[in-house]
Design a protein around this nucleic acid. Structure first.
Length: 257
DNA sequence: ATGGTAGTCTCACTA
């Protein structure tokens, strides 16, 4: 089962790319972030025509998440239970017995801002919820745009992307580490050791051409699923297309359970 | 330290 995460940065603009990529890559499940679409504008019938069941939680202009699947999606959850949040950043469902949590983690703007404080509170809340989910569903994948680069291999220059910088700060990485310590593994790092493999490149300053990016889109697999994780990677191809998203899809493949 | 680009019921905000 191929499971992927892709921040499309407006599904309205990127639907042709998504359609092309679904045809090329044939994922079983995709977690989408930054749809930027209200629910009544979500292209649900078009995606069904392409063979993808879908569930979604959106809003105007910002945020918005969805799950697409070739197989039935059960027990759908929108948002973090008990955490009041107007921003649509979380959707979860169960596919073929695997619980899949799709996250659009808060960006945080800059260290020390209100948005940064919101990011840290949000990470603490999602941590506590994932702990509960892991007890109910040992076979768990947590994927999404984490807006955190796990370590120095995941940035072009650790002197710039340091412990005081947004997306790499000590508190953000500690928040991610606490989530991993619940019993999750960075799927990409199960099969790839090298640095300089990124999933996001800033539109500005020719980031993609110069490979000045970050690896912030992650697919985490639980202890119970780790033996089934047989391959993983980042598909740079859609980032080369005309008018691309600034993110590329990150994926992990599970052997039949 | 700044600025660069892209998306959105924009002339500002988020990323």
């Amino acid at each position: 089962m191929k499971i992927a995460s892709w921040n499309v940065n407006s599904l309205n603009v990127r639907l042709p790319h998504l359609e092309q990529w679904l045809a090329d890559f044939a994922p079983d499940v995709v977690g989408i972030q930054e749809t930027k679409l209200e629910d009544h504008k979500f292209p649900d019938t078009r995606l069904l025509e392409l063979g993808y069941r879908n569930v979604f939680a959106g809003q105007k202009t910002y945020n918005g998440v969805a799950l697409l699947s070739r197989h039935p999606i059960e027990d759908v959850q929108i948002g973090i239970p008990g955490f009041e949040d107007e921003q649509k950043r979380v959707i979860a469902g169960t596919v073929n017995g695997v619980r899949i949590i799709n996250l659009y983690v808060v960006n945080g703007q800059d260290v020390g801002t209100d948005k940064y404080e919101y990011k840290l509170r949000w990470l603490a809340a999602v941590h506590d919820w994932i702990a509960d989910e892991l007890h109910k569903h040992p076979q768990l994948v947590v994927l999404g745009d984490f807006n955190i680069a796990p370590d120095e291999r995941d940035v072009p220059d650790p002197m710039v992307w340091n412990e005081n910088h947004i997306l790499t700060s000590t508190a953000e990485r500690a928040g991610l580490r606490k989530i991993l310590e619940l019993g999750l593994h960075d799927g990409f790092r199960l099969h790839n050791d090298e640095g300089g493999i990124f999933s996001w490149w800033d539109y500005r300053a020719a980031g993609f051409r110069r490979n000045l990016g970050l690896r912030i889109d992650l697919t985490l697999v639980s202890d119970a699923l780790k033996p089934r994780a047989q391959a993983s990677g980042i598909d740079r191809e859609p980032r080369t297309w005309d008018r691309p998203s600034d993110h590329a899809p990150a994926w992990v493949q599970l052997a039949q359970g």
